[in-house]
Computed example of a mutant assay.
Amino acid sequence: MRPPIVNPAMPAWGNGRRNPLVRRSRINWRTWLIVIVLLGALGVYAALPEAPFALGEAPLTGPVERVADGDTIEIGGQRIRLTGLDAPEWNQTCSRADGADWPCGRAATDRMRDLTRGAMLSCKGEGHDRYGRLLATCRAGDADIAESLVRDGLAVASGSYIRTESEARRAGRGIWQGRFDRPADWRATKTAEPQGNPSRFERFLAWLAGLFSS
């Protein structure tokens, strides 16, 4: 005699119910649209530059976020062109007394980094140039950083600091030890001036670069 056949219990999904172990994750087109719009808005925001510093207000203060070259720095999203001097561009070379080339532009940039590293600067705005940069005189405590660069012979005076430039010239410091092209003449044939304030994305990249270089 054969044993009775026992039918196994039918699972819930066998009666047309959804298997609880199988979950379908569906993202409808509305969700994708919201994600795309949010990403687009974030991209536009990152690409926009900071608003220009309003003149007539309190001095712009803060640490230096980036040193572009010997006379251009960035503070609080403002690209600042220091007044009263003109430093060699970062990739410009000059000649020593013996005629050998040396990277005077890199030396000026490195010196500006030394002058501003860890310092809280106070910059008095005087206007904006045709590229949208803030023209300003900046101080780190009692030290005028532009005058310090001229004193080291790493910039020419372009209106101020004439006496300081004469001292550097007589001492043969920096660019005054040999022959060099004035930065304005060198730029006319070699490079283009940076324009406007940096975008938020550029500031983010500069922040990352600072992390890896520190």
Rank of each mutant, 00 (worst) to 15 (best):
R2C: 05
P3H: 09
P3A: 06
P4W: 07
N7Y: 07
P8S: 14
P8H: 12
A9Y: 06
M10C: 13
P11S: 07
A12E: 09
N15P: 02
G16C: 04
N19T: 13
P20N: 07
R23E: 04
N28C: 13
N28A: 09
W29I: 10
W32H: 15
L33W: 12
V35R: 11
V37F: 08
G40P: 07
A41W: 10
Y45Q: 12
A46Q: 15
L48Q: 13
P49H: 12
P52L: 08
P52D: 15
F53G: 15
G56D: 12
L60V: 06
L60Y: 07
L60M: 12
T61L: 06
G62C: 08
V64C: 03
R66S: 10
A68M: 10
D69N: 09
D71M: 14
D71P: 12
T72N: 12
E74C: 11
I75M: 14
I80L: 12
I80A: 03
R81G: 10
R81T: 12
R81L: 13
G84R: 11
A87V: 14
E89N: 05
W90D: 08
W90I: 15
W90Q: 09
T93P: 01
T93D: 06
C94Q: 00
S95M: 11
A97G: 05
D98P: 03
G99A: 12
W102L: 07
P103F: 13
P103Y: 07
R106L: 14
A107P: 00
A108E: 02
A108Q: 01
A108M: 13
T109S: 15
D110N: 13
R111Y: 08
R113N: 10
L115K: 09
R117K: 11
R117D: 07
R117M: 03
G118F: 08
G118E: 11
M120H: 05
C123V: 10
K124E: 02
G127T: 04
L134Y: 08
T137A: 10
T137F: 09
R139Q: 08
G141L: 01
G141S: 06
A143W: 00
D144V: 06
D144C: 08
V150G: 04
G153W: 04
V156R: 02
S158C: 06
G159C: 07
S160T: 06
I162L: 02
I162S: 01
I162Y: 01
T164Y: 04
R170I: 07
R170P: 00
R173T: 03
I175R: 00
W176G: 00
G178Y: 00
R179S: 00
F180Q: 00
P183S: 08
P183V: 04
P183M: 05
W186N: 04
K190G: 05
K190Y: 02
Q195F: 12
G196S: 14
N197P: 04
S199C: 14
R200C: 10
F201P: 02
W207F: 11
A209L: 06
A209T: 12
A209W: 03
G210R: 13
G210I: 12
L211K: 05
F212E: 06
F212I: 11
S213M: 04
S214Q: 14
